[in-house]
Design a binder for these strands. Structure first.
Lengths: 262, 262
DNA sequence: TACACTCGTCTCTTGTAAGAGACAAAATCA
DNA sequence: TGATTTTGTCTCTTACAAGAGACGAGTGTA
């Protein structure tokens, strides 16, 4: 590997400088569309992923031809295509946990009236894989596919169970430890929380992501000790001790049901 | 463009001969996994898409890192990953027709007890986008994402409404005209069927894909005259005239509901 | 114990795709 | 109306990714 003068570029960092592999550009395009959540013009897309226009046109054409993207009716904006939906359904079909998990989450939110979610680690980040809104007049909603820093959530504390301090440290950035309201979490406290959650078999956080919600979470195991996902309920922060206790019981029961060999 | 001796390669045909663009290889990989519907070893994958092993390893690694593919627990087989599921859900969210269509299909099959499907054209092929199995003891099931030659289906006749003969001819290959039982459809008959279906506003086919089912389909319009999708019921071939008529009525009603500005 | 596999990783070469940029047409603005 | 930006397409160059192939470690089988 000739280094030349291109030092200071720490191996894993992508400097969007020079020539980029087409595939990587495509991955960035998909990720970008996932964050915008709406169709976008190709020119803007190029700007957004910070790629040359000509390249972007070529790539988008390939993707549209393949059906991964679709041109909107107005003809010059693009968004995800049917093929991605089909592949996604294939994933669901091949994935028992997800299939059953979606079901359980839907049931749970219907039974309790609270917002319920299935969460997993997705490339090192906390991800809401499926969510079902509650029936409250002002419901606390959260979008599928949303990615949130691990330390902000109850589920995050469960998903990292079993990892040692170094591994945990590697998975959370400094920014992740800063809560939405500006408070800064100490890494040590977070590590302690994780250990506590692991022995308790559930986790509750209050007013972390926002001031008026409480988050209840229970682990789903794919093997003894290995947390594959969590089920979680988002409830108003003033929910009574008694009701909270009942909900946690229910939640743990359902999560256990999802665990393999359960 | 130096031709050399590499003639006989008609422009749009891909000769999997020489160096292939990485992105294309990836698209082939995804398509291959979609057809196998199961996790597969990387070596076999390379054979399956007929790509060099070293290249395949590289690409798969990228895709796994990006979360589009996932390694199975056994560590050396791959299948679709969570990211594709998330992108797929984004597609659903951004696509009113699909979202509402899934709902209607589920309702319809619950109400009638018959297998119900939402179908669309996907890069020139008939595709079952969402299916809900009926409640019969021996239910006629069909998998989401399945692609079937247009002439085999009632929906196919509706989806091609409005196209002229040349366009239709371009969309069906010779093989497509051969039914599963070996009978060969005449293109002219197919074209006539399409015209008939268009004026009727629905289509019924009997014993085409197999000997014991009848297929009822109604068009979903995205604009006057433009068929965007079809809803369809798969029923036993011996369903009475009366019940068939009722079902068609119901089907047309629901399909109309889905049509924009309807 | 040899033989014939497949697996995952690495190195080196060269064909080619990413990108810069020019262009006409369309759209937007003043 | 002309001025300015955006859009979609095209051409040409060269940096670099696709691919051939070698390698050592694992796995089976005779």
């Amino acid at each position: 590997m000739q280094d030349g003068n291109a030092t200071a570029i720490s191996a894993d960092e992508k400097i969007s400088g020079s020539r980029e592999k087409g595939l990587n550009r495509v991955l960035e395009i998909l990720e970008f569309l996932h964050t915008t959540q709406r169709a976008i013009g190709i020119g803007d897309l190029a700007k957004g992923v910070n790629a040359p226009r000509s390249t972007t046109y070529t790539l988008v054409r390939s993707l549209v031809d393949a059906g991964l993207l679709e041109l909107e009716s107005d003809g010059n904006r693009v968004y995800f295509g049917k093929k991605l939906y089909l592949y996604g359904m294939d994933y669901v079909r091949g994935n028992d946990l997800l299939r059953r998990g979606r079901q359980e989450v839907d049931n749970l939110s219907r039974e309790t009236g609270e917002t319920s979610e299935l969460c997993m680690l997705q490339s090192g980040r906390y991800t809401i894989v499926h969510a079902s809104p509650g029936t409250r007049p002002f419901r606390i909603s959260s979008a599928t596919g949303l990615q949130i820093p691990l330390p902000w959530t109850a589920s995050g504390r469960l998903l990292l169970a079993g990892l040692d301090r170094a591994e945990i440290e590697a998975m959370v950035s400094d920014d992740d430890l800063v809560l939405p309201d500006g408070r800064k979490l100490r890494l040590d406290d977070f590590v302690t929380d994780i250990a506590k959650a692991q022995v308790a078999g559930y986790c509750v956080t209050s007013g972390l992501v926002d001031a008026y919600t409480k988050c209840l979470a229970a682990p789903v195991f794919s093997a003894p000790g290995k947390v594959e996902a969590t089920m979680c309920l988002v409830v108003p922060i003033d929910t009574s001790e008694e009701r909270t206790g009942k909900l946690i019981g229910l939640l743990r029961d359902r999560a256990a049901r999802l665990s393999t060999a359960g």
